[in-house]
Amino acid sequence: MATEENGHASCGCKGIRSCLICEKTKGIRSAENNGAPERNDFKYEASSGLAVRWSDEGVQQSFPFPGVLLWEDFVSEEEERDLVTRMDQDAWKESQSGRKKQDFGPKVNFKKQRVHLGTFSGLPAASSKLVLRMQQHPLLQGFQPVEQCNLDYNPQRGSAIDPHLDDSWLWGERLITINLLSDTIITMSMEEGQGELGQEEVRVRVDFPRRSLLVLYGEARHRWMHAIHRQDIHQRRVCSTYRELSSEFLPGGEQEALGSQLLRIALSFQGVPL
């Protein structure tokens, strides 16, 4: 819940970030209109692996969009209820852009590239069976998460997350997210001059159904920014994102010893949110 500050509800926004709470109380103008769907946005087709759009003249334009795995119905309705119930038994902390979060992972300073164990006690117990299930997929064999972040999105707070690339110094190749409670859309984007269509900014909208699992890897992980825009949150959405270690922290890497210690803690599945 948002706390009260000078008689007004507060939030976790900092810098240029904003949500409906601070926009109302502080008179901030939202930049979220930039995330509104556009007629010429591409849509990802999971069956073909293509990003597709249609021109006003009815001409199809497409290009390969590798690096996305969508695993629908990864969890059952009963599992979904149990997972969200367990999350709600723990405290949610205010986060930026109208989100709330629960962190299960080491304390990291990405700018200085430092990792501290702090009070990290592992991933939550409920994730143990989910990780075993993930590992059954050929793409996810050997996946060992060292960090889990639960996020709570709500349209009443104007929840969103800006386009970004996840860190690749600490976090490894595969980013996994389980989507709960409602459908949403992940918007992949590449800035002008960087994409498939020359100077035009390219955006690809990826449908992300409720109870499904999404993996970003390869080009979708390293070249394309990903975001969830306010317009694509229609009711409460809860998700869990899992990250693995980069090669620097795995056997043979410079920080193998630290990586081994982090994994031993993470995979004890005795964690409480930090």
Rank of each mutant, 00 (worst) to 15 (best):
Q144S: 09
I186G: 00
Q136V: 01
Q231L: 12
V206I: 14
S128T: 04
Q199T: 07
V238K: 02
D152W: 14
L197S: 02
V131Q: 06
I161F: 10
S121L: 00
V131F: 01
M225N: 03
G195M: 01
M225D: 02
A220E: 01
W169P: 03
F120E: 07
S127R: 01
D152V: 00
L216Q: 03
S182Q: 11
H229L: 04
T241Y: 05
S212H: 13
Q156V: 13
D162R: 14
L139D: 03
I185G: 02
G122T: 07
A126C: 14
V115I: 15
L175N: 00
I186A: 08
A227F: 05
R230I: 14
T187K: 02
P163R: 05
G158H: 02
Q136E: 09
R236N: 09
S168N: 04
V204R: 06
Y217R: 14
D232W: 04
H116W: 15
I186F: 14
D207P: 14
Q141T: 08
R210N: 13
L181K: 14
I161S: 05
R230M: 11
R237V: 09
H229E: 06
D162L: 12
E201M: 10
V204H: 04
A125V: 05
P145K: 00
A220I: 10
R157K: 10
W224H: 04
S212L: 10
V206S: 04
T177A: 13
M134T: 05
W224Y: 09
L139T: 06
Q136N: 09
R203A: 06
I233Y: 04
L140D: 03
C149W: 11
M190E: 00
K129H: 14
V202R: 02
L130Q: 01
M190L: 06
V206L: 13
L165V: 06
D162M: 12
M225L: 12
Q148C: 15
T241F: 05
R237Q: 06
R174K: 15
V146G: 08
G195K: 04
K129E: 04
G218P: 07
L151E: 03
T184L: 11
E147K: 14
L139C: 08
V238P: 01
L132V: 07
Q113I: 14
M225A: 11
F120Y: 15
W224C: 01
